[in-house]
Amino acid sequence: MSVIAKVREQDGARVVTLPSELLESIGAGVATALALDVKDGAIVAVPIAEPARQRSRRYTLAELLVGAEHLPEIYEGIAGALDGDPVGRELG
């Protein structure tokens, strides 16, 4: 399959749009990482498998504050900062 694509500029970057059919022919789709190389004056694109991303873990306020009771010993300017009730939408 031969496709003619024009290089254009977008926000200071040079961009080439690849047709879906061309990407599908190499097993690539939206969000597929491509390894790009130049061989014999041609750009070669090969899809690469990326490790699965783990979903970001949400921490409770108690988990985030583990060890915080020692902060005043390290930095006296923080004394009293951990006293008092929650003032926002903190998780318990």
Rank of each mutant, 00 (worst) to 15 (best):
I4D: 15
P72L: 05
A31Q: 09
E63A: 10
R53H: 10
A81Q: 04
G29H: 10
A52F: 08
E76N: 06
A62E: 08
V44Y: 05
P19S: 12
G12N: 06
R53D: 11
P86K: 06
D37W: 05
A28E: 01
M1G: 15
D11Q: 11
D85P: 00
G88E: 02
E50L: 15
S56E: 09
K6T: 12
V3D: 11
S56K: 15
R55H: 10
K39I: 12
A13Y: 15
D37P: 01
P72E: 03
A45L: 12
P51G: 06
G80S: 07
A42C: 10
A52R: 11
E9K: 04
S20F: 02
P72F: 06
T32D: 01
R89E: 04
L36C: 14
H70Q: 13
P86H: 01
L34I: 12
D37Y: 02
I78D: 00
L71Y: 09
T32P: 00
L65C: 04
V38T: 10
A81P: 00
A81S: 02
R14E: 12
S2D: 10
A28L: 08
T17L: 12
R8Y: 13
G84K: 04
I4N: 12
L18M: 14
R8E: 13
R14M: 12
A45T: 02
E90V: 01
V44S: 05
E73S: 14
E73K: 15
A28F: 06
L65W: 01
P72H: 07
E24Q: 13
I43P: 00
L61M: 11
V44Q: 09
V66G: 02
R89P: 00
I48C: 07
A45I: 02
P19G: 07
G12A: 07
A35F: 11
V46S: 12
T60W: 01
R58C: 01
L18T: 03
V15P: 04
E50T: 15
S20R: 14
I48P: 00
L71W: 04
R58E: 04
G80Y: 04
K6P: 00
G80C: 04
S56V: 13
P47K: 10
Y59I: 05
L36D: 03
T17M: 12
Y59F: 15
D85Q: 09
L64R: 12
R89I: 03
A33Q: 11
E9N: 06
A28G: 09
G92Q: 03
P72I: 00
I26M: 08
K6V: 07
E21K: 15
E69R: 11
I43E: 00
D85F: 05
D85W: 05
E76V: 02
S25P: 02
